[in-house]
């Protein structure tokens, strides 16, 4: 297997300062929010790499940098050895663009409601002057809908069917990598199962690679080959699903797994975790998790733990 995506030292800082005049009047300094900080990981070809973490941990920001919707502040993303941000050869840029597609949580919001399904699906191909003859119909059948659906409008479909249409659109340019940002979070479980099974089938049939973003641990456990856990914009642990769920090494991963409700957890009394995610504009010193960590020491407060190899995992914790 070879590496398809290589993310290196990726950081993204947003300027969240108030407008200049307010700052002067209220004597406020500039404010910066670090959404992603020094994130490093590789995605193997034809594998599923998942990013999990709670709201605001930087999952979508990384996804957007991987597809090129956002410019990294530092670091870079290479896809098949090509870094879109620094590449100058137009042909290579064009090819790389069609190699990467993205699907989002809310299928309805990402479609023009006045377009027919055919036009929605073909949009990325038309934009690059590709061949569209019979393509929409073929893709619709591939995602489990009917060729006749090509002439309908988005409102005529259920949520799960719309997500299938989004998948068809993502497939239209024959991509290698699909970044899926919470693709089933808005769907009912029975429909989620249909979509996840479909994604799995397409992966084997077409040799696709997924960067899968989700906050749902059970989904991630089911679908992934490798999982990265994010906290406040940093990777805190990475491993295979079995490693992570059977023997989580980082206290944050342990907290996430133990607080997720279990379908066989009848009458389970959890010691609920302490505290909430801190303000990303003013993150805690040292290990960002230390204010909530049950085993934190003085070192955790002052010194940030590096992400280091441990067995086959990577963990960023002084005490792991």
């Amino acid at each position: 297997m070879s590496t398809l995506v290589s993310v290196k030292n990726l950081s993204k800082v947003f300027d969240v300062s108030k407008p200049w005049l307010n700052r002067v009047i209220e004597r406020l300094p500039k404010a910066h929010l670090t959404a992603t900080s020094d994130v490093d990981f590789d995605v193997e070809e034809n594998a599923v790499y998942s990013l999990v973490g709670e709201s605001g941990s930087g999952k979508s920001t990384i996804g957007k940098m991987v597809v090129g919707l956002l410019q990294p502040t530092e670091g870079n993303v290479e896809i098949n050895g090509v870094d879109l941000a620094s590449e100058t050869d137009i042909e290579i840029i064009k090819q790389s663009r069609t190699d990467i597609q993205m699907i989002f949580q809310d299928p309805y919001a990402s479609m023009n409601p006045r377009w027919r399904v055919r036009d929605i699906i073909l949009e990325p191909v038309v934009a690059s002057n590709g061949d569209t003859e019979g393509l929409a119909e073929k893709l619709l059948e591939q995602v489990g809908l009917a060729a006749e659906d090509a002439t309908k409008f988005p409102h005529e479909f259920s949520g799960g069917q719309r997500q299938r249409i989004c998948i068809a659109r993502a497939l239209a340019s024959a991509p290698k990598l699909i970044v899926c940002d919470e693709p089933t979070s808005a769907l009912d479980v029975s429909v989620q199962a249909q979509v996840l099974n479909l994604m799995d089938d397409l992966k084997s049939e077409l040799g696709l690679t997924y960067l899968f973003i989700s906050h749902d641990l059970t989904v991630v456990r089911h679908i992934s080959d490798r999982i990265g856990v994010l906290y406040l914009g940093r990777l805190v642990e990475e491993g295979t699903p079995d490693q992570l769920f059977d023997a989580p090494k980082h206290p944050y991963t342990q907290m996430l797994i133990s607080s997720a409700p279990k379908i066989d957890g009848f009458g389970r009394e959890v010691d609920p975790p302490q505290g909430e995610i801190p303000d990303p504009i003013d993150p805690p010193s040292g290990c960002a998790f230390h204010p909530r960590c049950p085993i934190a020491t003085a070192k955790c407060k002052s010194e940030r733990p590096a992400l280091r190899e441990l067995d086959d995992n990577r963990v960023a914790c002084h005490l792991a």
């Binding site: 996840l196 799995d200 059970t218 989904v219 679908i223 279990k262 379908i263």
Partner: peptide, 17 residues
């Protein structure tokens, strides 16, 4: 539910909606 499919290749799905 994915939790019911630990160790399985595919999720069990209900057809339709």
């Amino acid at each position: 539910t994915p939790a019911a499919a630990i160790g399985l290749e595919k999720l069990r799905q209900i057809p339709g909606s």
